[in-house]
Design a protein around this nucleic acid. Structure first.
Lengths: 227, 227
DNA sequence: TTGGATAATCATCAGTATGACGATAATTAT
DNA sequence: ATAATTATCGTCATACTGATGATTATCCAA
């Protein structure tokens, strides 16, 4: 029996928070197709490489960060419409990554230029391939995961304050959250955060307790969006 | 530039409820590798076929059911470990389907024999390829989706009773649920079900109201597992 | 025909979570 | 010092949850 040959790629939706904005890692394509167009970083999977390993490799190439660092990586979905890549039949497995504020990305092998772009901006332009769809799906996944998982800590450095976490929720969900109720909920969700005992001053206002990520992965009870 | 060639397949986790048991559609492989082993149905994606279309096609081939019927189909995840198929480097996009009780499946092209197997049984044997992992992931996804989506109605015929839905939850979650609280919650979740006005007698006991699926897709509020 | 047995449906109650919002505490900027 | 700012604690009415009692409408067996 013979098999129709496909190219298999991984694409990355890497979110971080910079300058009080939710940003996504983008590249500007240096070659056809879609030359000069903004795209998500990604590349073909090597003949003997696991899918997740390929995603890790691309992530490291583009950001210079070993993914185990502070970075959460998970499979998002797979896109395989017949004409999505005009060159050859390609199936792309998209991965979603969340990173604490990273240094400016390093242009990798196949990236003419990589940079963090505010998500609001990336959503308004037409990305290469079906990357606009992938970005939208990734954003929706991230928003949903904040509700029932401890994902938000992945956007924060090792030590953070409740306000830092609230900031993540507000920027990702794009809504304002009552600080008092949010504070109560975070502390009520067992294993979400644990106090370090330190106080940190954030500029003006009363200094805040420092916390580190707790052992929980799921939030009990969850923190719901809207009503 | 040249691309490493991959085979791309779709595999199906099709759940239904038969004889008061959660069952999954399985085939017995007729050819090597894993000849004679139980596997999930699936097959290679055609050169010009969309991934979801391939899943629909496989579903129709194995069950004889047009997927739009009463069947919900969604992408589960993609599996691409380098050695998962000993013949050639293969990436498999798994799809999850939920069906109301279907007629006995029809053996399809590449299936020596297709049949419904209780999930409890399928979990205990070693399936071909990495299909045991796929099945486990599919089951967990199904369990999770019951909490916040109206998925349960996909397991029911067009008209059903609250007890029918409860039965779905009990069988998929594998736990007993209090009928009184469950009844209350289902009716409280707006758009989950709407009454047809009919009464149906289920054998002994007071006859139940008949319902049909409502317009909602998400449950508000959700119906939580455990505490 | 009647008295279970069975299942659907309604009702109650206490514990918990939620949103709105008032009050206090601890800093920095002026 | 005083004002502005942010963290944190409290209060309250409402909503949701799990446990459980009570009622209703059937079928079935004596």
């Amino acid at each position: 029996m013979t098999f129709p040959p496909f190219a298999v790629a991984v694409d990355l939706v890497v979110f971080t928070i910079r300058n009080d904005e939710l940003c996504v890692l983008t590249i500007k394509r240096g070659e056809a197709p879609y030359k000069g167009r903004v795209a998500l970083p990604g590349g073909f999977v090597l003949p003997n490489e696991d899918l997740e390993a390929a995603a890790q490799r691309e992530l490291a190439e583009e950001t210079g960060v070993g993914a185990s660092h502070d970075t959460h990586l998970e499979q998002l979905a797979t896109y395989g419409a017949p004409k999505r890549d005009p060159r050859i039949r390609t199936v792309s497995v998209a991965y979603l990554a969340f990173a604490a504020d990273l240094p400016e990305p390093v242009a990798g092998t196949d990236a003419a230029s990589a940079k963090w772009m505010p998500v609001s901006e990336a959503l308004e332009i037409k990305l290469a391939f079906d990357h606009s769809t992938i970005l939208k799906d990734g954003l929706e996944r991230a928003r949903a995961k904040l509700e029932y998982s401890t994902l938000a800590t992945a956007f924060c450095p090792a030590e953070f304050t409740i306000a830092d976490i609230r900031n993540v929720y507000e920027l990702v969900w794009g809504i304002a959250i009552d600080p008092r109720n949010f504070h109560r909920k975070v502390l009520a969700s067992v294993g979400f955060v644990e106090p370090t005992g330190e106080l940190v001053s954030q500029g003006r206002g009363r200094p805040a307790q420092a916390f580190r990520a707790g052992p929980a992965v799921q939030l009990h009870p969850p923190i719901a969006r809207g009503t």
